[in-house]
Amino acid sequence: MVSLTNTISFPIDFRKDIDEEIVKKDKEPVFVTCKTCKRRSLKKDWKDNYYVCPNCGKYSTISAYYRLSLILDPRSFKELNANMKASDPMEFPEYKEKLQKQKKETGLEEAAVTATGKIGGHKVTVIVLDSRFFMGSMSTIVGEKVTRAVEYATKKKTPLIIFSASGGARMQEGIYSLMQMAKTAAAVEEFNASGGLYISYLTHPTTGGVTASFASLGDITLAEPGALIGFAGPRVIEQTIHKKLPKGFQRSEYLESHGFVDKIVPRSEMRETLLKLIELHQA
């Protein structure tokens, strides 16, 4: 395992606490309890385990910048279009306020962070969707940042790595959100035609318009263990078919066994897997 000691300076403090949907806070601040296995462990142990429960292996959400720090070579990170601000094309009621709130809570300008950097000395273009910002939903700016980064990868002839995490469309941006699917898919297809390697890495959750556009178009599709991946959400499906869905439906492992994922790659093996794949594609 390559050392992950992070010496990259990031614009914000990415070392947020563990996702509180996954763990319960403890009276003593150094401890947390996993909501899945109910076992108590040191926060530090979660952190050392890349925010995966040291007891049961449950994955906690991580921020886009933290993920970048796990895969990129030290000091190679350069953010692309960092200053693109969220927009409100439909002038949707209360949307601006909600955006402000999310910005404050996450320190992000939008749900996508796009960057260039190096993995084992190889230049790469990386897109990370951050599910903490509006559930990583596809807004016009997310679509635009993704498209620009893909175009950058096409122009600079670098491999493209996209970490998807999305609840689907950004409701408040209506049809503009839908159109981003066509825009991003076209950019990926142009990248594809130029001969570039695209590794699509699906993380929890990858659904809706993101699944139905760039996330499903990788040459290599990887997934994080236990991630929810699908087009329609499980609740909508259950309401439609009036049946309970089987356990594990639409999870990474289910998709792998149904032929849509090349490999399930744990967080701890993320960087070395990417490096191996990039090197396998060197002429």
Binding site: A212, S213, F231, H258
Partner: peptide, 26 residues
């Protein structure tokens, strides 16, 4: 909309739509 059924998901509803979008652009 696309059919939100179990088999539709198992057969890759998202993939099918994504590929159409990509190919139609070409």
């Amino acid at each position: 909309g696309a059919y939100p059924g179990m088999e539709a998901e198992e057969h890759g509803q998202g993939e099918a739509i994504a590929v159409n979008l990509a190919k139609m652009s070409q």
